[in-house]
Design a protein around this nucleic acid. Structure first.
Lengths: 335, 335
DNA sequence: TTGTTAGGAGTAACCGGTTACACAAAGTAT
DNA sequence: ATACTTTGTGTAACCGGTTACTCCTAACAA
């Protein structure tokens, strides 16, 4: 039988209250008692039951992390950041992969509520009305990563997608490119879709380059759609010298299609991605891209969430800085 | 204040036992009572507290998953498999990333014990003696993924690495290659190191090709080491027509170095990887490799673990089937 | 000497459920 | 009519901790 605090108390000839106090480093016992209790605990191999403790603390020291896709490198890097910070602060992380279908999100939220988690981090997923309603009744702090909400009580941690996209396109323009196509995600996507497209448009506008809708094609953020988009682009617009994609995956998909067509990269066509996932430096030629501090985003999100949990106050949002990662897929056209 | 079962009982004019029975679908109440209770629960927005329930069930419906690296695609695919199956069966998953340093494993095991998790899945990590001792005192079922233990009480789920490696090399030989190099992981690694190297040697032996130690170079399973290994290989042995790497990451790293050296793939040099991570089809040319059913490995592991938890019996291990994934990096040398 | 205070330790209520057991009423067999 | 089930429901103990409150004693100030 696994020993309980009562067993320890009996064995050490003290009360359970005293054992509890020693365990929690509270005051109210002599040093002699402390030694006796500690020794008994070790002799018996006693380990406190966190579940029982949680029951009256009303804190489970657990946070739930919801992802649309754990398998994406983006998500797993963020997860690692969250997890590292959480462990340090004594919190555990429950993963919730909502990828498969929409109902899973609701199901998971129910599970998280029943498990009395202390807070939730939602990664790159927009809070639908349905979820929000449920979340409100849970009265639990929430932090968003790479997403945003109009609710001032829900802070977010993300980079400025429009600005990052703007900078990427400016980078291309500064390298002498004027005929730049974009492979965008869905323009309805408020996180990685619309703002990145807007950044592209703004950069062109500011640099005096006319925007042509034939130079924008749409994918679903993932690898295969990048290839499909590239095929379409090759058909509809010949004069392009550079392609900017809203995600690295799409950039790589597009680049591979170009390579299959015998197009040389970057000599004939330049590519620029967005995310700086590990993949981007593992391909040949290595992809130039926009870097997001993924690990740090995760850590920041965990930090904010835990602060909210422990202070009960709302914490300000954070716009983390991005950077242009220069590799080998962008040609310098200036002579 | 969040309503408890007592609040519901009072409101519905029944005892807490009755509410509990309705909640758990037990027998022993009239239909009228049931309706009344259900209505009250809904009206009050009552949700049972899983923590309190766990306290007397002695089951937390939680499993811990330990990884050396969540960020690796391998791990995240397995995690997804585990998580999917677990959710279906009402279990939640606590992720434990032991990547950073060795002490974290011990720390995490302590956390898992205190949290009274029902079982542990250890992914591609060998159980050190230190861990094993602790695990034994926890008296909790364990399942290994892509690893092995001499303890018959610890089942594993993995592919036959030696055989898979053997098949990969035979595949190359059947395509007419005789000068095959290998980029191995550490030969001390009992999971992905030694067996894969052995498979390579066995295949050569069986096909009557002499083994040359100058054709084996060692990496650490990750991307960069593949490149380094390739550099070494290019220096020490010129006549190679194919390179087999113990992981896709190393294969890709090696291939990129080859491309940088102006070597054409697969025309001048063929490459074969191992793992079939997403990356392998995202590069150009797409990497031929050995496929492991990662998602299924995860699901199987979760399934076995939950069976062990619920029946208390040890479950047999599983050797899952691998397959050769033909893509574009292997040249057919037969005229 | 007496009153006050602080420190060490114990008792018991409580957190929010589950469940063994008790019991009354209604139904069925004899 | 009596004895025995069955059904519906309640009471209270229990899971393993935390903590408010109480009590006793020794030390110290007046």
């Amino acid at each position: 039988m696994i020993p309980t605090i009562r067993d320890v108390a009996r064995e050490a000839n003290v009360s359970i209250a005293t054992v509890s106090r020693v365990l929690n480093g509270l005051t109210g016992y002599s040093d002699k008692t402390k030694q006796k209790v500690i020794k008994t605990i070790e002799d018996m191999g006693y380990h406190p039951n966190a579940i029982a403790r949680f029951l009256n603390n009303r804190r489970t020291q657990t946070i739930g992390v919801m992802f649309p896709a754990v398998t994406s490198e983006f998500a797993s890097a963020v997860l690692q950041g969250i997890e590292e910070f959480a462990l340090e602060r004594g919190y555990s992380v429950l993963v919730c992969n909502t990828e498969v279908d929409g109902n899973r999100t609701m199901k998971y939220l129910q599970v998280l509520r029943e498990r009395q988690i202390d807070g939730i981090i939602v990664v790159s997923e927009v809070l639908k009305h349905e979820y929000k309603h449920l979340l409100e009744t849970m009265k639990v702090p929430i932090v968003l990563v790479s997403s945003e909400s109009d609710d001032p009580d829900i802070p977010y941690v993300r980079v400025d997608d429009r600005q990052a996209s703007y900078d990427a396109v400016c980078y291309l323009i500064n390298k002498g490119h004027r005929d730049i196509a974009m492979i965008s995600g869905s323009p309805d996507d408020p996180v990685a879709g619309r703002p990145r497209l807007q950044g592209y448009k703004d950069a062109l506008y500011d640099k005096g380059i006319p925007y042509r809708s034939s130079r924008v094609v749409y994918g679903d953020f993932h690898y295969d759609s990048g290839g499909t988009a590239m095929e379409a682009l090759l058909k509809q617009d010949k004069g392009v010298t550079a392609v900017f994609a809203a995600t690295d995956e799409m950039a790589v998909g597009a680049m591979n299609v170009a390579l299959q067509h015998g197009i040389r990269v970057p000599d004939d066509l330049s590519f620029m991605g967005y995310d700086n996932i590990r993949l981007s430096r593992m391909i040949y030629p290595a992809l130039s891209t926009v870097g997001q501090p993924l690990l740090a985003l995760g850590q920041e999100a965990a930090s904010k969430l835990i602060t909210m949990i422990e202070t009960g106050k709302v914490v300000p949002s954070l716009v983390a800085s991005h950077k242009i990662v220069e590799r080998q897929t962008v040609m310098d056209l200036r002579t």
